[in-house]
Nucleic acid binder design. Sequence first.
DNA 1: TTTCAACATGAAAATTTTGTCATGTTTTGG
DNA 2: CCAAAACATGACAAAATTTTCATGTTGAAA
Lengths: 223, 223
Amino acid sequence: MRILVVEDDEVAAEYVRKGLMEAGHVVDRASDGELGLEMAKVADYDALILDRMLPKRDGLSLLGALREDGDSTPVLILSALGEVDQKVEGLRAGGDDYLAKPYSFTELLARVEAIGRRSDPTAAVTKLKAGDMEMDLLARTVKRGDQKIFLQPREFRLLECLMRHAGRVVTRTMLLEKVWDYHFDPQTNVIDVHVSRLRAKIDKNFETPMLHTVRGAGYRLQA
Amino acid sequence: MRILVVEDDEVAAEYVRKGLMEAGHVVDRASDGELGLEMAKVADYDALILDRMLPKRDGLSLLGALREDGDSTPVLILSALGEVDQKVEGLRAGGDDYLAKPYSFTELLARVEAIGRRSDPTAAVTKLKAGDMEMDLLARTVKRGDQKIFLQPREFRLLECLMRHAGRVVTRTMLLEKVWDYHFDPQTNVIDVHVSRLRAKIDKNFETPMLHTVRGAGYRLQA
DNA sequence: TTTCAACATGAAAATTTTGTCATGTTTTGG
DNA sequence: CCAAAACATGACAAAATTTTCATGTTGAAA
């Protein structure tokens, strides 16, 4: 697990870092709130350990900014303030757990691993978006604007592939592999036909077309 | 939020229940561990509040059984045992948070809402399990044991519906609605035919059949 | 034990989906 | 401007899937 520890106290930080590393985690450390926020935004951590009182930017403010940003990395808040109301405040601010100092390292480890486990790494994407188009992989439905679009299985796979690479060109070879599982050139125009059919459904009755031909290269779905 | 409180002490249970209901949640209560496990398995709660010491089956054992079952409903463990090691044990057992008695109701509420929020309501299930069978909704694949099983679209939907209600009887009317989108009786035996075909694929070459007919009622997939 | 409704299943028919072909259109380099 | 390659599309053919139908089997109540 990749963990970021935001703690100004040198000794405490080192203590925690060492212990987490021994437990097999990768640990970074930030010494103040501003730096912590930067690092959390840039890198992709599995969990954050956040001291509540920090230089430059306190823990709750950092947490708030992060959540504002749509970041849902699990956060364990550390604090010398053991008051019940403080804990409540911390949890309400979007924290996943709250630990009052002094704490035992064993407990900290257990808690971090508990909150980290939650953010399921196997959690898959179930919805794809591109422009005003939205695809629900589980319901197998597609909408453009608020217009439902009904696709055949092959058309669905074709659009899925295009959406997964929205904005970039998808070559014919790629399509044959991803959508048809062909690992050779079938010497026919299957792709053209299905692209044509897809276009009729997703672009025909709309202002701006999304599916563009990139002559000599393939197709691109505009985001 | 639908919350299940498993607590033997009448007074404590009522206190918690009342408070949670005032906060706008729907609350059920179980007075012992065995009943609690049954209820948690049958109904679909957003969070469980679990007393650690319970008649018939203690909190950790209940939690273990639940997780064993693949259930990941967030659990808040309550306990008179405030020891650090006890907390660690509770979190390791699969608990999402741990609260030592005596606690303030405000804190309990904050914590329950915190763990409930975690189980992202938009986070969709992408894999279904029942016995040794596993279905991946995104990849649209099915395995029983380590044997891959190839299903037609309609067969897939049929099995999906059965798996979503594994262990319980699914009536013919339910199948018509969920799998065929028929809201009337088609007066044919479509269901029988597809059940037959599904059986040939998922049960034929295996020791124990999973798909059972419940005469006069419907079908049940054994978990 | 008999009878009847509920269920099971193989095979054929109907429908849906996919792929092929023929033909037309657009783009680009010479 | 012309030719050739790349792409688009309507119509048809093929394949896959789903449904219906006919017939057999099973289980529970009378």
